[in-house]
Simulated scan of single mutants.
Amino acid sequence: MSARVVAAARGWIGTPYVHQASVRGAGADCLGLVRGVWREILGEEPEVPPPYTADWGETGREELLMAAGLRHMAQVTGGWAEGQVLLFRMREGAVAKHLGILSQAGEDARFVHAYDRHGVVESPLSAPWRARVAARFAIPGA
C-alpha cells in the first residue's frame, strides 16, 4: 500500500498552499495534505484537528502533531520506506509542526509536502531536512 500512499501524495502536487485547508487542487497546508491522503487511502479521518497557527517556529510544550501521530499511526523506528509520514521540528526548542510524506527512500530520498508560497511540492530530503525529522509514522495498512 505504500506505493498507493506515494501515488496519492503525488496527486496533490500543484495544489496551492492554503492554511488549514485540505482540498486537492484547491488548497492545502502540510497537515491538510496528510489528511487528504488519509481520506483517499482509508476513508474518513479519525478526528478533526483543532485550529492551529502556521508558525513553524512556535515554541511551547504541546506536541499536538506528535500526539496525534501516536494516536492514529504506528511510529517507525526502523528503516526509511516510501509512504512514511515525516514529522519535522524546524528548529531546536520549537514544536514539531511540519509534515511530509516520504516519496522515495535511499540515497536520492524525496518527500511531498506543502508550504507557504510553494504549495504542494516534491522536494529532495536533503541533509538539512533529514536532520529536522522528529518522528516517522506509518499510515495504518500502508
Rank of each mutant, 00 (worst) to 15 (best):
A135L: 08
T77V: 10
A127G: 09
A134D: 14
A105Y: 05
E62C: 07
L64P: 06
G78K: 05
V76T: 10
M66V: 07
L125W: 12
P50W: 00
Q75T: 11
P124T: 10
F88C: 15
V112C: 03
G60A: 03
L87D: 10
I101M: 06
P140G: 05
L125E: 12
A127S: 11
A135R: 09
L87Y: 09
P50F: 00
R91V: 05
Y52R: 06
Y115K: 10
A94V: 04
G93W: 09
E92P: 12
V121L: 14
G32F: 07
H98V: 08
M66D: 06
D116S: 13
T77Q: 06
L86M: 11
K97C: 10
W38F: 08
G78R: 10
G79R: 14
L125F: 12
R71V: 11
W56H: 10
R89E: 13
G32A: 08
A28G: 03
D116P: 05
R91W: 01
G93N: 05
H72I: 09
P51T: 01
L42C: 08
G43R: 00
R91G: 12
A114W: 05
G78H: 08
Q104H: 12
M90I: 09
R117N: 15
E82I: 00
G100K: 09
W38N: 01
G27P: 01
R132C: 11
E40T: 04
V121E: 15
Q104W: 03
G119H: 05
Y115S: 12
L125N: 11
I139H: 03
G36D: 02
E63W: 00
E47F: 05
E122Q: 03
I139K: 02
L125C: 10
D116Q: 14
H118M: 14
H118Y: 13
D116F: 10
E62N: 13
R89A: 13
M66I: 04
M73H: 07
S103V: 04
G100C: 10
A105R: 14
E63M: 00
S126W: 02
E40L: 01
V34F: 04
L33T: 01
V76S: 12
L70E: 15
Q104P: 02
T53N: 04
D116T: 14
P46M: 05
F111Y: 15
W38A: 04
E82G: 13
M90R: 13
R91M: 12
L31D: 05
L102H: 04
E122H: 01
V112P: 06
P51H: 02
D29T: 08
R35L: 07
E63V: 00
I41W: 02
A105S: 13
L125R: 09
V95T: 13
I41R: 03
R35N: 00
L87N: 07
H113F: 03
A74K: 14
I101F: 06
Q104A: 15
I139D: 01
G141N: 09
F88M: 15
E47S: 05
R136D: 06
K97E: 09
L42K: 06
L70K: 13
S123L: 15
R89W: 12
L99I: 08
F137C: 07
P51V: 01
E40C: 00
L33V: 08
A138P: 02
V133G: 07
G69V: 06
I139G: 01
A28E: 06
A114D: 09
E58A: 14
